[in-house]
């Protein structure tokens, strides 16, 4: 099994490389010269050539690719940990990413936790009240939430909570007088700004979790061993914690791996609407400005997060259900 995970990590590097290559191909083969975005057309031809040379855009594509990878010795590429230099902000990409990565990580992980808490509680509740009124209400609300576009929901929440009630700020991650606050004030301010985005990401993605949790528990409740446990005279509580819960968790843990790309994608939209400085926001800005180094770096990071999510979900499945070990060889 350990071997299996080593193999997985080994393959993960290839997947990341594949993604980086794919992004490189998509962005560099696109029509249009990237330097056109930054140079005015009246600029002296010699100077334009010089600038292009500085950015390394004058060479043929495969040389650029190898240089960017860091395979040709004097140039440092992503293999050496050099992600390049942003065209747009004139800063090293690494620094820029490091500034905004914590925000996105905090946003998505908190959303994931809220999602699973809600999904567990409501899923279990509606599975135990199957076909009653409360179950029907929960499922219809969750399917309705699942069908709403996130950006629209964010706008509605902004109308309600920021513009009408004025409880939460509608954009940015800090207040203007952020520096004056004490430590707790700063934390509170941070949470206050992130409350609505987390609400959108967490609550509105929990519909799937509720559905899978409910379905899983209903499946298990029909099994013979539950009937047997009831016959033995175990209490419902014991049956639930000993037999039902662990058996029904596997599909939920598989979902974790799927949620990472989903949440990252949603965070792009949410960060755009709430104007939060995060990975998604930076990616959109750099896509509009054709800032290649940032685009490629953010895709690599998101791919890393996705792969880590998949690994976590596999590990959780094995910890929860040792029978699954034979599948991970």
């Amino acid at each position: 099994m350990f071997k299996y995970f080593l193999k997985r990590i080994f393959f993960a590097f290839f997947i990341v490389l594949g993604i980086a290559t794919l992004t490189f191909i998509i962005t560099r083969l696109a029509p249009g010269d990237p330097s056109m975005m930054y140079l005015s057309p009246e600029i002296n031809h010699e100077i334009a050539k010089q600038i292009r040379e500085n950015y390394g855009l004058n060479e043929s594509l495969h040389i650029q690719y190898l240089k960017w990878l860091g395979v040709i010795p004097p140039f440092e590429g992503i293999v050496q940990g050099n992600f390049g230099y942003s065209f747009l902000y004139h800063r090293p990409v690494k620094d820029m990413i490091m500034d905004v990565l914590p925000n996105t990580l905090f946003l998505t992980s908190t959303a994931l936790i809220i999602n699973f808490l809600l999904g567990f509680l409501l899923g279990i509740y509606s599975a135990y009240n199957v076909n009653k009124k409360s179950d029907k209400i929960i499922s219809s609300i969750s399917i309705a939430l699942y069908s709403m576009p996130e950006f629209w929901v964010s706008l509605l929440l902004i109308i309600l909570f920021s513009l009408l009630l004025g409880w939460f700020p509608s954009s940015q991650i800090h207040s203007t007088n952020y520096e004056d606050y004490s430590f707790f004030g700063k934390t509170f301010d941070y949470l206050k700004h992130l409350f609505l985005p987390i609400l959108v990401l967490g609550v509105f993605s929990s519909a799937t979790t509720i559905k899978y949790m409910r379905g899983g528990i209903l499946d298990i409740l029909q099994k013979d061993f539950i009937l047997f446990a009831r016959m033995k005279g175990l209490s419902e509580k014991e049956i639930f914690f000993r037999h039902v819960l662990r058996n029904s968790l596997n599909p939920i843990f598989t979902l974790i791996g799927l949620y990472f790309p989903f949440l990252l994608g949603s965070s792009v939209i949410v960060e755009y609407v709430f104007a939060l400085p995060g990975i998604g926001r930076i990616t959109i800005d750099s896509i509009f400005a054709r800032d290649y180094p940032i685009i490629i770096t953010t895709t690599i990071i998101s791919a890393f997060l996705v792969i880590i999510g998949n690994l976590i979900s596999d590990i959780l499945i094995i910890l929860n259900d040792p029978r699954q070990r034979k599948n991970f060889r």
């Binding site: 696109a30 994608g265 896509i287 998101s302």
Partner: peptide, 16 residues
Amino acid sequence: LAFPVIFLLLIIVAFW
């Protein structure tokens, strides 16, 4: 699959 779909889509649509 390791790409968040909207990322990939944004990049392709913006560039092509």
